[in-house]
């Protein structure tokens, strides 16, 4: 038996305890950061929330001159741009995931998967300048006039697509957001589809189902929670995305029925105005916007994570 030096053992015990304490402290710090974010935003937003009360989220006015602020226009812009983004990105992401898992020749799986991940790695500011200098002119010259021309005789739609084609506005922001969240949705859905046991799919094929029928009646029901999780994760990104939107939204604090009109979102209002905000109420109102965004995205992301986790448990267990 080896002879253990008691001093050495005592020293080792001290090291052990301090190392464990350090890792524990780091883990707790992660919790503290999120708690700190919530508390600091609440403190910063308090003057505005006390001054305006609940009407802060109900009014459209945003006037630094008269020091009156309401969050309705940014909330509207955030929700509508994200909805447009999801309306485009969810079907497209589903298609990409389907292509990658069911149709893609194995040789191409890696390169296309990498390309999708590359799109996810492009910084948001790049989407912003590309959206402003490339996408917006294209939409302005081709898509928007077409929409205006074809929608004007259809009741309901004519309200959505009216006014001059600015190129920048709610619609363009939604399209840029769609391109940004597409890789996240596609990648999550692909991973979820990959977890479907081959036996289930083979059973479907064995019964004579077509590829689409296997996907729609076997893969999708099996991975429903994961699909929802992926969509919510994309939605969380879309709601909080800042720079790409700031370039193309037009930054107008008003609610317009037309999707072609300029608008604003919570994050782009903060990005545009925060450093120029003079006066405590102005700054505080912008932080209150940040608090709203925090609450909205936190709930969406938390719900997404909860769904994806449930799926993980099922797969491992």
């Amino acid at each position: 038996m080896a002879i253990i030096d008691p001093r050495h053992a005592a020293k080792q015990l001290v090291y052990e305890k301090s190392f464990k304490a350090a890792t524990l402290a780091a883990a707790i710090l992660v919790l503290l950061i999120l708690g700190g974010v919530a508390i600091s935003l609440m403190i910063g937003a308090w003057p505005a929330l006390r001054h305006f009360g609940f009407s802060f989220v109900m009014t459209e006015v945003w006037n630094p001159v008269t020091d009156e602020y309401g969050a309705l226009a940014p909330i509207y812009g955030t929700v509508v741009t994200s909805l447009i983004a999801m309306a485009i990105a969810v079907p497209a992401g589903f298609g990409i995931a389907l292509f990658l898992t069911e149709m893609c020749p194995p040789v191409l799986k890696r390169p296309i998967g990498t390309a999708v991940e590359l799109l996810a790695a492009v910084p948001s500011i790049i989407f912003g300048i590309w959206g402003l200098f490339v996408l917006a002119p294209v939409l302005q010259r081709h898509t928007e006039p077409w929409l205006i021309e074809h929608a004007h005789s259809i009741p309901g739609l004519n309200k959505l697509f009216m006014g001059p084609p600015y190129g920048i506005g709610i619609l363009t922001a939604g399209v840029v957001l769609a391109i940004m969240v597409l890789p996240f949705i596609a990648a999550t859905m692909r991973d979820v589809f990959d977890t479907v046991p081959a036996m289930l799919k083979e059973s479907g094929y064995g019964l004579g189902a077509t590829t689409w029928e296997v996907i729609w009646h076997v893969v999708v029901p099996y991975s429903r929670a994961g699909i929802a999780g992926g969509i919510m994760l994309g939605l969380g990104r879309a709601l909080g995305e800042t720079m790409a939107v700031t370039f193309v939204i037009g930054n107008a604090h008003r609610i317009s029925s037309s999707l072609l009109a300029p608008g604003t979102t919570i994050s782009s209002s903060i990005a545009n105005e925060f450093t120029e905000a003079v006066g405590d109420l102005y700054t505080s109102s912008l932080i209150a916007l940040g608090l709203l965004l925090f609450i909205i995205t936190f709930s969406v992301i938390a719900a997404a994570q909860a769904m994806l986790r449930r799926l993980e448990r099922r797969v491992s267990g």
Binding site: L34, V37, A271, T297
Partner: peptide, 17 residues
């Protein structure tokens, strides 16, 4: 869980913090 939330939290919120 919190770490995964932070992973996709809007970065502008971190800036405000």
């Amino acid at each position: 869980f919190i770490n995964d939330v932070l992973l996709s939290a809007p970065s502008i919120i971190i800036g405000l913090f």
